[in-house]
Structure formats: structure tokens, C-alpha cells
């Protein structure tokens, strides 16, 4: 069963790319462009692992939807164009998990989604890609039943690609996430790690090199 995410956003163009990106990364997405509609549908079905909600919505706005979502135990990430501190405080003290100010980078949203899901232990406990099984809890990787040893950095790198599957990551993004933003290292370090992972897991055609951008882990759902 795939993780289900609820997205409520009144701008169709924004809703579209959030939904598509999330789906490509392996989530199942339910989307609404109106607060009232979302609220009504929540009554019938509310088994979501996470909700991404715009604050300014027609009908019920994000602040009104927050208590409903909380009553079903759904963690919430707010989206808004307002960057004012008072709004952030209102959202976060009201019980929202996180807060994204438009315009935002999809990668950042994906990482935050992942972090929250991990915290709530709602992410898939074991990931299987072809004949490779990854257990993020134990940090182990097995191929055809045999354990393959990955160095910690290699494991993190693999997890990052897996969490953002079907989405290309730039070398800079990988570097920033794995070694910290301050790390001014060679982007070649990434290439070395990727080639080692490919060799160990026989992932030559799973982790694709995207020219001029970086790498993408492709999985057919």
C-alpha cells in the first residue's frame, strides 16, 4: 500500500505540479482546489498520512481545516504566499507540522514531507526496487537475499535518490543534503559514490545520469 497524501491548493497550476511530482516520487495523491469540498470529502475518507494545505483557500481556509485534519491525526504542511512571522506563528502554534512560503522548491517540499512521514513512522518501512530490498530502520540493503555492505555516505545517497524517485537531483542538491550546505567539496565526490552504489547493487540502468543536471532513480510503479 502506498502512502497517501492530501493536497489542497486553489491554484490549478501549482496543484498540478505538486500532485505530479508527489506521484512521480511514489505517493498516492488526493487533491482539492476548494476548502469546502476537501472538508466534505474528509468526512467520508480521511486515512491520509500527510496533508499539504494552502492557507488562502476559497470556502474554508487552511486555518479552519487544520483542526479537522488534526482530529483525524493527519499532520499538516502549510503553503502560503504570505511570509509574515505572525502567520507562521499562527500556523505552527495551531498545530501545523511545517510551513512553506511560496515560491518554494519542490525538492524542499519533498524532503520535508519525507522527514515528517519518518517522524510519524508513516513512510514505507521496507523499500523494494527490483531485487534489492532496503530497510531504512536497520540501514541494511539486501540483494537477492544477500546483504550488501554500503558505506554510511553511500547509504544516505541511495536513500535520498529513493525518497525522490523518478525526480532528478542535481549534484549540488545531493552534496548539500548529504554533506551540509557549507560543504564546498568537489561535485565529483558524488559521481564516485553513485558509481560505487551502481556497481554494488547492479543499478546501472536504475540510477540514470541526466546530462547537465545530475542523477535520477527511475522506478516503474
Amino acid at each position: 500500500m502506498r502512502t497517501k497524501i492530501l493536497v489542497i491548493e486553489d491554484d490549478a497550476a501549482i496543484l498540478s505540479f505538486i500532485t505530479t511530482s508527489l506521484e512521480a516520487t511514489g505517493y498516492e495523491v488526493a487533491s482539492f482546489i476548494d476548502g469546502n469540498e476537501a472538508s466534505v470529502s474528509l468526512d467520508k475518507y480521511h486515512d491520509y498520512s500527510l496533508a499539504i494545505v494552502d492557507i488562502m483557500l476559497p470556502g474554508k481556509d487552511g486555518f479552519e481545516l487544520l483542526p479537522e485534519l488534526q482530529s483525524y491525526g493527519v499532520p499538516v504542511i502549510f503553503l502560503t504566499a504570505k511570509g509574515e512571522l505572525s502567520d507562521k506563528v499562527k500556523g505552527l502554534t495551531g498545530g501545523a507540522e511545517d510551513y512553506m512560503v511560496k515560491p518554494f522548491e519542490m525538492l524542499e517540499l519533498l524532503i520535508r514531507v519525507d522527514k515528517i512521514l519518518k517522524r510519524y513512522k508513516k513512510s514505507e518501512p521496507i523499500i523494494q526496487i527490483r531485487d534489492v530490498v532496503i530497510d531504512p530502520e536497520k540501514r541494511t540493503v539486501t540483494k537477492q537475499g544477500k546483504e550488501v555492505y554500503l558505506k554510511p555516505m553511500e547509504f544516505d545517497c541511495l536513500m535520498m535518490l529513493v525518497c525522490n524517485r523518478n525526480k532528478a537531483l542535481t549534484r549540488k542538491q545531493l552534496l548539500g543534503q548529504l554533506w551540509g550546505m557549507e560543504f564546498e567539496g568537489e561535485t565529483r565526490t558524488i559521481d564516485t559514490h553513485i558509481s560505487r552504489i551502481r556497481k554494488k547493487l547492479d543499478f546501472q540502468d536504475v540510477i540514470k545520469t541526466i546530462p547537465r543536471i545530475g542523477y535520477r532513480l527511475e522506478v516503474d510503479e
Binding site: 491554484d11 497550476a13 505540479f17 504570505k82 519542490m106 535520477r216 527511475e218
Partner: peptide, 23 residues
């Protein structure tokens, strides 16, 4: 500035997706 953010978010988000996701 507020009005600009929404279309900008949509443009950046969609363009980013085009560039990075196999659609």
C-alpha cells in the same frame, strides 16, 4: 509582491518538474 508569488511558484514548480521528472 504577494500577487506575484503565486504565478511564480507555478512557473518555477512546473519548469522544475519538466526538467527533473520523467513525465
Amino acid at each position: 509582491a504577494h500577487e506575484l508569488k503565486t504565478p511564480l511558484t507555478a512557473i518555477i514548480g512546473n519548469a522544475d518538474m519538466l526538467l527533473t521528472v520523467h513525465l
